[in-house]
């Protein structure tokens, strides 16, 4: 309990410090609310608008919870395939990197043209954002298993598949999870961008709506919600990691 508190207080103090500075700056320099609302303005707006925004939050959450697992699964499948079949790695690895050079914002309108305004183009967009970190992290994790253990497995007569399931896969878990954690934060962002391109609800849609009305405070409410959603998703993945990689020694003990 004490150690959790010890880990928690520095970022907490930093955030409080930042918010106080923001609040003071806004009131000291008389910044107009439509340019930059103060934190208290945002909280007030949040409370006033809570029921209205809840629908949008749920919509974005739903989209994220569909897209993120699919994106992660695609990333994992690509990593496994490229690892187990070395020739596919040589063939597709450059393409993989290329896919990340195309900005998702530029891709979004094309996806709408091809797949309409339904769920599918949005899922594709989230998948495109999510799969890459998982694929790259998992691949490097799979390639970095311990040489002595590998020799041990070979001398004991283990085949390729046994080496994969009993050595490479478990030893890749920590790095797999760092990829999934990055994807988790990208997923919410991907969902919001997907909603920009065509949706009738969701945080992304809400943001567009408020932007055209110069409701800056509500824009910030949307940002806070996006941050909170990302954090929750991240925390869930971190917990899952802690449980699955419980064999790993803690760094500070």
């Amino acid at each position: 309990m004490r150690s959790t508190w010890k880990q928690l207080w520095p970022p907490l103090v930093a955030v409080i410090f930042l918010l106080t500075g923001w609040q003071l700056a806004v009131s000291l320099f008389h910044v107009e609310a439509w340019i930059l609302p103060s934190p208290t303005d945002i909280i007030r707006e949040f409370n006033a608008n809570a029921t209205g925004i809840w629908v949008h939050t749920l919509a974005t959450l739903r989209l994220t919870l569909i897209g993120f697992p699919i994106g992660t699964a695609v990333g994992l499948i690509i990593a496994l395939l490229l690892h187990l079949l070395p020739w596919t790695r040589r063939a597709f690895y450059p393409l993989l990197i290329l896919s990340q050079n195309v900005p998702s914002i530029a891709l979004a309108p094309l996806l709408v043209i091809w797949f309409g305004f339904g769920l599918l183009p949005k899922i594709i967009l989230i998948t495109l954002v999510c799969f890459f970190p998982v694929a790259v992290a998992t691949m490097s994790g799979l390639a970095q298993s311990d040489g002595i253990m590998l020799n041990y497995m070979k001398m004991a007569g283990a085949g390729k598949w046994q080496i994969f399931t009993k050595l490479e896969l478990p030893s890749s878990l920590p790095s797999l999870f760092s990829g999934v954690k990055i994807s988790a934060t990208y997923a919410v962002m991907g969902a919001v961008v997907a909603e920009w391109i065509g949706a009738d609800k969701g945080i992304g849609y809400y943001m567009l709506l408020q932007k055209s009305a110069y409701h800056t405070d509500r824009m910030f409410v949307a940002i806070v919600i996006i941050v909170l959603l990302s954090l929750v998703l991240f925390a869930i993945i971190a917990l899952l990691e802690k449980w699955l990689v419980r064999w790993k020694p803690r760094r500070n003990s």
């Binding site: 002595i148 041990y152 007569g157 878990l173 064999w247 790993k248």
Partner: peptide, 27 residues
């Protein structure tokens, strides 16, 4: 030919994700 000997390397090289019992049983 592989799989004919029982090997003990210089470092213990136990599999960190396996319990001691499961490590001992791996061969």
């Amino acid at each position: 030919q592989r799989g004919e000997i029982s090997y003990m390397p210089q470092q213990p090289a136990l599999f960190p994700w396996r319990t001691i019992e499961d490590n001992v049983l791996i061969a």
